[in-house]
Design a protein around this nucleic acid. Sequence first.
DNA 1: AAGGACAGCAACCGCCCAACC
DNA 2: CGGTTGGGCGGTTGCTGTCCT
Length: 358
Amino acid sequence: MGRHSCCVKQKLRKGLWSPEEDEKLFNHITRFGVGCWSSVPKLAGLQRCGKSCRLRWINYLRPDLKRGMFSQQEEDLIISLHEILGNRWAQIAAQLPGRTDNEIKNFWNSCLKKKLVKQGIDPATHKPLSTDDQKEEESCSKRIITTTENSKIQIPFSTALASSLNDSGYYAGDDNSNAITEASRDIFMTSNNNKPTFLDPLSSFYADFPHQPNNYHHLAPVTAVTNYCGGGFSSMPSLTNSDQGGHVSVTDQFMNSNKESSSNNSSSNMYTSVTGFSSSSPWDASAENITNKLVEPFFQFSAIKCEDLYKTSCSSWEEDQEHTHTNTASSSIHFSTYPLTSLSEDLTAANFDVFHHI
DNA sequence: AAGGACAGCAACCGCCCAACC
DNA sequence: CGGTTGGGCGGTTGCTGTCCT
C-alpha cells in the first residue's frame, strides 16, 4: 500500500470544487500570492489539502491560463515535443504558454493519440505503424520540408530536424528523412554527464554542419542560449533550403513587433528595454553566458508573421560566412526559437524576465 | 424517452526528489 | 546522515455530457 492520501488522513473535502471554494482560493492567492501550499487551506478557510489547492490553482484558477481549443499550431508543437520528450508533460507544457500539463496530457490521450493512429503513426514512437504507412509518412514529411512559401511555412520542428538526422542523431545529409529517434533524444537528454540538465532543447541549439556531404557531425544542445530564448517553436524553414526569403534581423523583428503593439503603452515600455538589449547582437548581450558554447554570434530570423505564437530562426552556413564575426574555423548551423508573444501585445512581465535576466 | 457507450476533462493517487531539520 | 515534509509530476479514476441505438 502506498502512502495514505493527505485528504483521507485529515478528513478533508474531495471531489469537484464549488464556486465558493474557488472564490476563496482565488482571493487568497491573488491577495497573498503563492507561498506554502500546505498552509493555504487553513489561511483561505478551505477544507482541502494543500495539494488539492495547488492543483486547482495551477489547472483552473490561474489568471494566465489560456482557455478553449488547441490551435493547429499548438497541436503540431505538442506532437513535435512529445516526439522528443515523451510523456514529460510538464516540460511540454512549459513550451506552451497558458496551457497546463494536465490539459496537454488530456488532450494527448483523448485526441492526438487517436489522430496519429489514424494517420498511421505510432503515438508512442512517432514512427509509421506499417511499411505502407511508412511510405505515406515519408512522402508527407518531404512535402512539409520542401514547403517554403515566404517563410510562413508551418513545419513541426522535429520533422525538419528529423530530415537532417540519421538514426544516431547525426546529420546525415539530404537523403535521410528518418523520424527523430530515441538516440537523438538521448543526445539532448544526456548532454551533461547523463544528468537531466536538458533545459529547453527545442529553443535553441546548434549543429555542426558538415563541410562535406558525408561528413557527420554531432548535434549538441546549447543550453545557455535558452536563457535568451526561453520558448518553444512551432515552425521552421527547411534546413536545406536557402531560398527562404524575407529575412529580417533580430532588431527588425523587435521593431516590427513593437509597431504592431504600439497602441499598448506597457508594450512600448517593454520595447524600449528590449531594444536596448537587441540593438547590438543578441549573442553579444548574452556573451558571458554562451561564450564557450555558441560558436557564432550571429543568426537571422526568417519568421515573418507576428501573430504566430513562436518563430524559429535558422541561419545557414553560407549566411554565417557572410555575416558573422566568428573567430572560429568551425562552420555551424544555428536553430533558435523565441516566444513571439514576449514581443507583442501579449508581453508580460514574466516573459520579459526571460530577456531581462540575461 | 430511456439507457448504454463513449469521450472529454477535472481531480485524485502515489511516487519521486529536494530541502530542511 | 537519516528522517520528514512539501512540492512536482505522470498515471489513473470517475464524473458529466453527448451521442447512438
